[in-house]
């Protein structure tokens, strides 16, 4: 066995896994706060990538304007979706809301195709391009940068959830909505906030994914792998999204390199089935705490 090759493939896989984890976090945030299974997360990521393209290539803005601009637009998109599509549906059958997000995904693809066309495009370079070596192993500088950014954002989240009062309010709302209302938490505001933050996160992930692989209206299929990640990790578990994200990134890379590209999906979905059979709530998903 070629250890160097194995190491390089693994590092690339873990790098990609960082992006799964980041997008998975966006998914988990919405699910945790509002119990909405948002199947449009991949398309929201795609919109983020195109908005960045619009700012940086279309308007030729420098990175330090285009990136915050992208986050801002993604956040507004989240607020808009929550206010106009999701909130009126609260209390409806979860399946209806789930279907609604599928529809939303298609609408976003259609809108992007209207504005930018269906052909793949390249984002202007904004990441370092010098080759990077960990020991002897080559690491794509873009993947390394994306991984570093994803790790930073995820860490920031974990800190906010634990120490920021708004983060505690969000977890409280996720834990017991009626009780959150009863103690003065503005629950609709928490819902809105969770969509805003989640869509900003997905937008950031879109920039990173687009910088590595280019952008196209179909790049939302990234969301499918993310769905596997959050189901394996547990729909409401931040930690689960992190670990499952890295693991599935790694697994896909190994399967692709050693078995062939067509085995990637087979391998990840086999893992999905396996995990669900052993742990129906995912690896870290919560059911109720059994009181001792």
């Amino acid at each position: 066995m070629d250890w160097l090759f194995l190491t390089e493939v693994s590092l690339a896989g873990i790098g990609a896994g960082g992006l799964y984890a980041l997008t998975g976090l966006a998914f988990v945030l919405i699910y945790k706060a509002t119990r909405v299974v948002n199947l449009a997360i991949g398309e929201i990521l795609m919109v983020g990538a195109y908005v960045f393209f619009g700012f940086s290539a279309g308007l030729a803005l420098p990175f330090w304007l285009a990136a915050p601009g992208t986050l801002l637009v993604s956040g507004l998109l989240g607020a808009g979706i929550e206010r106009t599509l999701i909130r009126p549906m609260l209390g409806e059958n979860p399946i209806s809301i789930f279907m609604l997000t599928i529809g939303l995904g298609s609408i976003l693809v259609g809108l992007v195709e209207l504005v930018w066309g269906a052909n793949p495009l390249r984002l202007p370079e904004f990441m370092p391009t010098q080759p990077l070596f960990l020991g002897e192993a080559y690491v794509s500088p873009k993947v390394a940068t994306a991984f570093a950014v994803a790790s930073l954002v995820v860490t920031a989240f974990l800190i906010l959830f634990r120490f920021w009062r708004g983060g505690v309010a969000l977890r409280a709302t996720a834990s017991d909505q009626a009780a959150a209302y009863s103690m003065g938490i503005d629950v609709p505001k928490v819902f809105s906030l969770s969509w805003v933050i989640a869509c900003m996160t997905a937008g950031a992930a879109g920039m990173l994914v687009g910088a590595i692989g280019g952008i196209s209206p179909t790049m939302g299929v990234f969301g499918l792998s993310v769905l596997v990640v959050v189901i394996v990790g547990g729909l409401d578990s931040v930690l689960g999204a992190l670990i499952a994200g890295l693991a599935i990134g790694l697994l896909e890379a190994l399967a692709g390199a050693f078995l062939g590209g067509e085995y990637k999906t087979l391998t990840t979905f086999s893992l999905l089935v396996l995990v669900l059979m052993v742990r129906p709530h995912g690896l870290f998903g919560t059911h109720e705490i059994e009181r001792l």
């Binding site: 309010a169 409280a172 834990s175 017991d176 109720e288």
Partner: peptide, 14 residues
């Protein structure tokens, strides 16, 4: 209706 997966202190913070 305590927030079961929050700590006692976080319940108070909420």
């Amino acid at each position: 209706h305590v927030f079961e997966d929050l700590t006692v202190e976080e319940n108070l913070t909420a």
